[in-house]
Design a protein around this nucleic acid. Sequence first.
DNA 1: TTTCTTCATTGATCGAAATCAAATCACGCT
DNA 2: AGCGTGATTTGATTTCGATCAATGAAGAAA
Lengths: 227, 227
Amino acid sequence: MNRLMKPGARERETLLNSGLLSALGVESVAAMMEIAVIGNLPARQILFREGEPADMLHCVLSGYVRLYKLDPDGREADVELYGPGDLIGASALLDGSRYAVTAQAAEPSLIARFDLKRVREIASRRTDLCTALANALSAQLSRVFASLADDRLHTAPQRVARYLLSHCAPDGRAVSFRLPYQKSLLAGKLGLAPEALSRAFSLLRNHGVNVRGRLVQITDPEALRRV
Amino acid sequence: MNRLMKPGARERETLLNSGLLSALGVESVAAMMEIAVIGNLPARQILFREGEPADMLHCVLSGYVRLYKLDPDGREADVELYGPGDLIGASALLDGSRYAVTAQAAEPSLIARFDLKRVREIASRRTDLCTALANALSAQLSRVFASLADDRLHTAPQRVARYLLSHCAPDGRAVSFRLPYQKSLLAGKLGLAPEALSRAFSLLRNHGVNVRGRLVQITDPEALRRV
DNA sequence: TTTCTTCATTGATCGAAATCAAATCACGCT
DNA sequence: AGCGTGATTTGATTTCGATCAATGAAGAAA
């Protein structure tokens, strides 16, 4: 981690709106702010590795962090992609447990770190923190269930279509937006090789999707839903 | 649910050793026992469906419960299989949330049910319960991460080999054991069609695995690790 | 035991996506 | 603007596992 620092005004602001802190009472927020350390990560920097003793909880302030597991021969499988406001490392909450995955900054990122021991200490006194942790975990578990089922039930073009739809307003109107990160990252998140993502996009051209760089235009969300 | 009842001596015993209650202090255990309702599920009975408002937490006492998601056309994808001691439904802990998956008894099962409102109420007063919930969720999240990565990194025979190895002592000695459930269930848990599981078993015969019914003999765990 | 039903195996075919290879594009940097 | 590296696209091939179909085995009920 390049620079370590106490949270400044901007960082406090972001942290306050994060998934973990937004539901806390003022005293718990203060306690967490007290132990927060802000760090600036260059792209590709590793936060922690699978199997290491877990000693830190992380929260993304800006940028994206990729969670993946490694094969004995070095191949990587992404299991989650966390963005601003997301909590990282809660899968190793239990005292003495180890990280189940490796976490790597997918682009230059700002993150907050909390010493796990002290988090546990605060959580044992303040139920609102403990509840917030449980809720965050609960939501994450649902998300991963969804990914796993999506993987097993849908083809690559369908998964891509569903991803695009999840970033649209639910009304049936045309939209256009910018992908929040590189296509290769998106491919990993969807469990695809980059080539497969590319082919999926080109197939979806027939279903009202236009892609140019990171810009996506969806002319007919309804058609997309039927892919 | 066939019969509803207060926990008897046997059920209390099992509950005490379950993942959720085993870490609690006596008072929290008492509070949870107070609100526990035991039910007997016939095979194939649905506990709850994806999308329903979540109002209950469940704990498996005996048997197995299968969690799956449905496709628009009715195909099912298993995301988790819970056995004795496991906590179900914690992915919908947040007040007002809905079940993310459908839960179905895979065989005749005994389960304990806890009213979620009252669980939240107790958890807000007693941090040990709250912590135990968070820990259970944390462990579940790790497991699902592992499944997801396993799916993406390994072939069917490799997944089966890893499953078998995870049920062996870590020493390199030969073992034999009984599969805890039907092969079709195992196939679902591993994200395979039953045919694929069958083929994987027959391929693994060349690597020191003998299967007859639910009986599995592993003559050379080392060879299996190298598949 | 006999019957009936469900589960498991085996074979054949098909489709989806990984992989390998090469060409093209985009962007940050000087 | 021009370079150069890395990202993306496209094509060809191959592998893996789903699916369909049919047979065989096992377990439950009478």
